[in-house]
Nucleic acid binder design. Structure first.
Lengths: 198, 198, 198, 198
DNA sequence: CATGAATGAGTCTTCATTCAT
DNA sequence: AATGAATGAAGACTCATTCAT
């Protein structure tokens, strides 16, 4: 009856399940992934699964929250004196790099199908907010420094950067001949053109 | 002797079912939409569904094919002497207008989740091919006329136009404060910047 | 508004449907045969089917009754002065010949699965009664003429002849290398041994 | 750590389901038996069914295989020095005794209707092979010992013994006034006559 | 904690039968 | 009479979740 909870071990196993789910969701979509498949991939029993996540959806939310936290952390580790456009480009590079995990594009597609669920929609909105809140100040600063056009406000410009980024990620996910390596350079160019004052 | 087949009525009802499915898929996703829900929405019995579409998936494919045919038709009705950039912008307008059916963005999301199915993937690939094949010649012609930059080939430039368009549509679908009316002007500007020779 | 009922044409079409059903039942079993398949095979519309037979089961019963009538007719055309054992052997030959329609064995199997239905059970019982009633008098006459053993009564002996015949037909239906042509001679021998006085 | 798998309990429950299915199939045929009915009879939930048998058909195959295994075992426990004709008669008795389970004849009929399915056909062929392979050597030995006629080869003679046995079982199944108890003696006599050298 | 057997509500799909034309 | 579109009840099977061990 000793205290058998080992928080470290618990957290490790949680991550194993999350990783397995990422693999499965990416391969077969959210609805197409059974909890049994995740358990198999994670090497656990079906009962164990529900010790860590009360529902299948809560697992999806956990993954989304993990991504949001990661983004938040990335922005919070920018130093105040960095170059505004440099941060924007670093964000592009960071995003492209994240997508080098070949499962990510598939996972993004998988999430789309569940957007009807209010909780998922809320989690995605939270994620979008974090990105917007992270990026917008730098773009505003770029405007103040006359690096960035001012005919659109910072909020809309940020939205349009994300339009390009999301379109880029979507095409990575759906077109095998469209790769981050080959097109990353063009991405930077397009965003520069989008933001440029001219 | 008795002509019980009324092809017109048949086609009309087929379209009613397709319309109902569009509504349901957009609202609750593909997997989240039951055939019963489609039947209810279309005002038909569950058995009738089977008369028109052998499976739920075949209905999805029919919708996709309809869209592909529509796109093909749009491009084939361009006249050879139209202005290259004018056609590109007309395509942007056409796409944005199509998406003014508020169900379309949701439907696009819904489709993403089924991409695991080979038939769906093939249908989407066919659709992408039609768009690419429709747009690329005009961009190439724009290059020949020195309206469009030539540091990227027509194929890649077309892909990037679609990156922007898809990103635009995606944001329409997910952000209520991002509307086609308000942002359509920016879309044209971004694509112009993307293609411009400077 | 003329009297369009042409009894001859009606009867002919009835037989076409029965023939088609025989083919389908033999190939795919009773439950495995859809009314649609029968209609296709018969070259009629599904509505027409139900003009001729109120239910699928009634069609099966019609086929069974047809066979029963055929058997009854066969026995009623025996002349009173025929040789008792000769009639028994003629019956064996007659049965074997009927089974030369390759659909018959399959149809027999198909019927087995529906025997739970009271109406079908009754039809089969009627058929069995006709055979028993047709054959038993000849076997009794064979006993009276000392051609046939008398340690079993005519009723049981008849039953045993049918045991052998049914086993024979069943094996024809299930074993491709067991053919009526090759084994017909043995069938006669076995029945002779069964009935012989020794 | 926790041994949640209890193979004994698992096997027991498997047999409960098989037994329930035997009852249902015999009473209402294969197609006429719903999985729900089997579950009710077995006292399990519908989902549990799937834990033990992936499909309704697999359950049927399991029953057939069980019978085949039982037959194989029966033959393999004959001792080499047994009397040839004694073994044949013991087999007759064994079969008749098996059929004293009143569900068996009905089950045999039920199987007939599914013979269209290749897997079922294969299972039945396997079963027939085991019987033929089990019986034929003893009949051949009977021929060598001059106990059995030699004008037909052992293979055909075995087939004919099975013709009689199957006809016997079929009549047990369909005619209530034809009982194993009353007719068992005749069965032995008929087979003796069939095999006798005279 | 870990397990996996058990559950049953919910899904897609089938098909005999009806009926307006 | 003949047609085939429409129907809806019913069936096999799936799978997230629970719980006794």
């Amino acid at each position: 009856m000793a205290r058998t909870v080992d928080p470290e071990r618990h957290e490790a196993r949680r991550l194993v399940i999350i990783d397995a789910a990422l693999t499965c969701f990416a391969a077969t979509g959210y609805a197409g992934t059974t909890t049994a498949a995740i358990c198999r991939e994670a090497g656990i029993g079906s009962g164990t699964f529900f010790h860590y996540f009360p529902t299948k959806q809560s697992l999806l939310l956990a993954i989304l929250d993990l991504g949001t936290a990661e983004t938040r952390e990335w922005f919070s580790s920018r130093r105040p004196d960095e170059d505004a456009l440099g941060v924007v480009e670093a964000y592009l590079a960071h995003t492209a790099e994240e997508m080098s995990d070949p499962r990510l594009p598939g996972f993004v597609r998988a999430v789309g199908s569940v957007m009807g669920e209010p909780e998922v929609e809320a989690a995605l909105a939270r994620d979008a907010d974090v990105v917007q809140a992270g990026l917008e100040p730098w773009i505003a600063r770029g405007q103040a420094a006359a690096q960035v056009r001012t005919d659109l406000d910072a909020h809309d410009l940020t939205a349009w950067v994300l339009v390009v980024v999301d379109g880029f990620l979507g095409r990575l996910a759906t077109h095998a001949d469209f790769t981050a390596d080959a097109q990353g350079r063009v991405l930077r160019d397009v965003v520069r053109r989008l933001l440029s004052a001219s």
